[in-house]
C-alpha cells in the first residue's frame, strides 16, 4: 500500500489533504477567476462583506476586492511555503548526511554551526536575512530557508548515525562502495520517512514566517499576501475589523491543514512500524 493511501486512511490526514487541495485549487484558479492585478482598485472603499454580490467579502480601505486578494494570497503563501521548505530540507539533508556519515571534526564543525543557527531566534534570523537581501519573493524564500534548515539537519544526522552501523551499510562498505554513494544511495532513503513527517511542520512554519514578514512590511511590496492584507486591515481595525480577520482565517486553515497532514503522516508511519521490519 502506497504512502499516500495510508495517509488518506487516517482521519486527520484525509481532512488535512482535502483542505490543502482546496487551497491549492484556489491558488491555481486565482488568475482565471480574478484576472487582473489584485492590488488594483476595483470598487468603492470599505464595502462590508455580503453587501454587494460583485464583492462577496467586501473591499478594503482603497477599494480593492478582498476575495481576489485571498485567492492571490493563497498563491503567494503556498508558493513561498513550499519553496522555502524544499530549500531548507535540501540544505538540512546534505548537512545532516555529511555530518552523520563523515563524523570526526567535519561532524563537530557542522553541528556547532547548526547550534549557532539555533540559538538565534528563527524569526530574528529571517528578518536579518531579509534586511540584508532586500524584500522580494526570492529573498523571502532564501531567508526562510536559511533560518529553517537546522531541524531537518539534526534529524537526518541522528537517523544516519543509527543506520550507518547496521548490517547492510557494513555490507556496502565491504563490497567497496564509495562512502558518498553509501551515504546518499543506501542510507539517505531509509532515513527519509521521519524527515518527511517533519517537512510538513517546516512548510507550516515557512508559511507562518512569510506571513509574519509581510505583516511587518518586510515582504515583497508588489505581491498581495495574507500577511500584507492583515497589515493594512490593522490600520483600520476599529472601523473595519473584517479586513484583518478574514485573511487570518485563510492562513489559519492552511497551516492547520498542513499540521493535520503531518499528524496523518506520523500515524501512518507508526502503523507501518507496528509491523516489525526485516
Amino acid at each position: 500500500m502506497g504512502m499516500m493511501a495510508r495517509l488518506l486512511r487516517t482521519r486527520s490526514g484525509l481532512i488535512g489533504a482535502c483542505l490543502l487541495l482546496v487551497m491549492a485549487l484556489a491558488a491555481l484558479a486565482a488568475p482565471v477567476l480574478f484576472p487582473g492585478d489584485p492590488l488594483a482598485i476595483a470598487g468603492p472603499a470599505f464595502l462590508p462583506p455580503l453587501a454587494d454580490t460583485a464583492f462577496p467579502l467586501g473591499t478594503d480601505s482603497l477599494g480593492r476586492d478582498v476575495l481576489a486578494g485571498l485567492f492571490h494570497g493563497a498563491r503567494a503563501s503556498l508558493a513561498v511555503g513550499l519553496a522555502a521548505a524544499l530549500a531548507a530540507l535540501l540544505v538540512g539533508l546534505v548537512v545532516g548526511t555529511v555530518a552523520g556519515f563523515a563524523g570526526g571534526w567535519v561532524d563537530e564543525v557542522l553541528m556547532r554551526i547548526t547550534d549557532a543557527f539555533q540559538v538565534i531566534p528563527r524569526f530574528l534570523l529571517a528578518l536579518a536575512f531579509v534586511s540584508v537581501l532586500g524584500g522580494s519573493m526570492t529573498t523571502v524564500v532564501i531567508a526562510i530557508a536559511l533560518s529553517s534548515w537546522t531541524e531537518p539537519a539534526r534529524l537526518v544526522r541522528a537517523e544516519v548515525l543509527s543506520i550507518r552501523e547496521r548490517d547492510y551499510a557494513a555490507a556496502a562498505r565491504v563490497i567497496g562502495m564509495h562512502p558518498a554513494e553509501i551515504a546518499f544511495r543506501e542510507i539517505l532513503p531509509i532515513a527519509l520517512p521521519p524527515v518527511l513527517a517533519l517537512s510538513a511542520i517546516i512548510v507550516a512554519a515557512a508559511i507562518m514566517i512569510e506571513s509574519a514578514l509581510s505583516f511587518l512590511g518586510f515582504g515583497d511590496p508588489n505581491i498581495v499576501t495574507w500577511g500584507s492584507m492583515m497589515a493594512e486591515g490593522r490600520n483600520v481595525l476599529r472601523s473595519a475589523p473584517f479586513l484583518s480577520v478574514v485573511p487570518g482565517i485563510a492562513l489559519l486553515v492552511t497551516v492547520l491543514a498542513v499540521y493535520l497532514v503531518s499528524e496523518g503522516v506520523n500515524t501512518a508511519l507508526n502503523n507501518n512500524q507496528a509491523v516489525p521490519r526485516g
Binding site: 509574519a212 492583515m230 484583518s244 480577520v245 492562513l251 489559519l252 497551516v255 492547520l256 498542513v258 499540521y259
Partner: peptide, 8 residues
Amino acid sequence: LYAIPGFW
C-alpha cells in the same frame, strides 16, 4: 492553537 498565527 498551534496553527493560529500570533499576530492574527
